[in-house]
């Protein structure tokens, strides 16, 4: 590009275009930094999810090895968010939002998956946004848009599916909350679900609450599915397109897979000698695992 210049006398618009060049260069630099950060956040999030899939219980803190393994990856994510926070402020927050959305979604997937494993609940959007804000440091926060959140939760259902199927294959049962005494259960939920104490007192006398079976992951998957099915993305938006054509069909399939696996377990599971794997057919299981 610079070679072109000496051939011809500087045009009368040169000065104007020199100014434009500087601005476009700055824009492209910001954009590339954002894209790179998004990729790094995605890669680190995937590794975190990978480790989280080795957890076998829900509703309790993840084992120490998980935190130890994942600490460096959380650090990478933090560094990346910190690094680009300044580029994504004010006017530029939405300018590059489609460059960071991949990273945001994958981060949401990892964050919400761990949150689910520990508390058996879906992380509120504000809490996820606060996590990112904390990482941005003084430069400000990177916005987590509703699109990022919803699409991230869609992806998280895939992790819940893998988690459930693995658990059924190894333990012969669907993961569920701790089947403790009713009182204890309410208490545990109070701490984990971010709900006021006052509410729990209101709820406690309810007789149906205490006698309930512990919630399984499939119960939660169905509840998430219900919420996602009800969610209406803006008509004609990119978000809607992504949701309707890609994420929702995959999400539905994930719930179906767990339901099918549970069916297999229910029909054949009682005949199962100890240590015998649920008969979902070798091919079927491979398909699920490789998903």
């Amino acid at each position: 590009m610079a070679d072109g210049k000496p051939e011809q006398p500087p045009s009368r618009f040169s000065a104007m275009f020199e100014g434009f060049r500087k601005e476009l260069d700055e824009h492209h630099d910001r954009r590339e930094r954002t894209i790179k950060a998004s990729r790094d956040i995605t890669a680190a999030s995937k590794k975190i999810i990978f480790t989280l899939q080795r957890v076998r219980n829900v509703g309790q803190p993840v084992p120490a090895f998980v935190n130890k393994n994942n600490a460096p990856y959380w650090k990478i994510i933090e560094d990346q968010y910190k690094g680009i926070a300044a580029d994504l402020q004010g006017l530029n927050a939405y300018r590059y939002s489609h460059n960071i959305t991949g990273g945001n979604q994958e981060f949401m997937e990892a964050l919400s998956f761990q949150h689910y494993l520990e508390t058996q609940s879906v992380i509120p959007q504000e809490e996820a946004q606060a996590k990112i804000a904390a990482m941005g440091g003084e430069a400000g926060t990177v916005s987590l848009t509703p699109d990022d959140f919803i699409l991230g939760i869609c992806d998280m259902t895939g992790e819940l599916m893998r988690f459930s199927v693995t658990s059924m294959a190894t333990n012969g049962k669907l993961p569920a909350g701790t089947p403790a005494a009713p009182n204890k259960r309410v208490k545990q939920e109070a701490s984990s679900e971010d709900i006021n104490d006052k509410m729990d007192i209101d709820e406690e006398p309810s007789p149906s609450q205490g006698s309930q079976k512990p919630r399984t992951v499939l119960d939660d998957l169905r509840a998430i599915r219900l919420q996602l099915e009800m969610f209406e993305a803006p008509l004609g938006s990119k978000f809607q397109h992504e949701l309707v054509t890609k994420k929702m069909p995959v999400m539905r399939e994930c719930v179906d897979k767990v339901e099918k696996a549970l069916y297999g377990l229910t029909v054949r599971g009682s005949e199962r000698p100890k240590g015998w794997m649920p008969d979902m057919g070798g091919g079927r299981q491979a398909e699920v695992e490789s998903y």
Binding site: T119, Q120, S121, V122, I123, P124, Q125, I150, G177, E189, E193, I195, E203, Q209, Q212, R215, D219, D220, A223, I224, L226, Q227, L228, M230, F231
Partner: peptide, 12 residues
Amino acid sequence: LSKMTGVNPAIF
């Protein structure tokens, strides 16, 4: 509902 399912509809 939220207590029963662990999926708080208010989030959505």
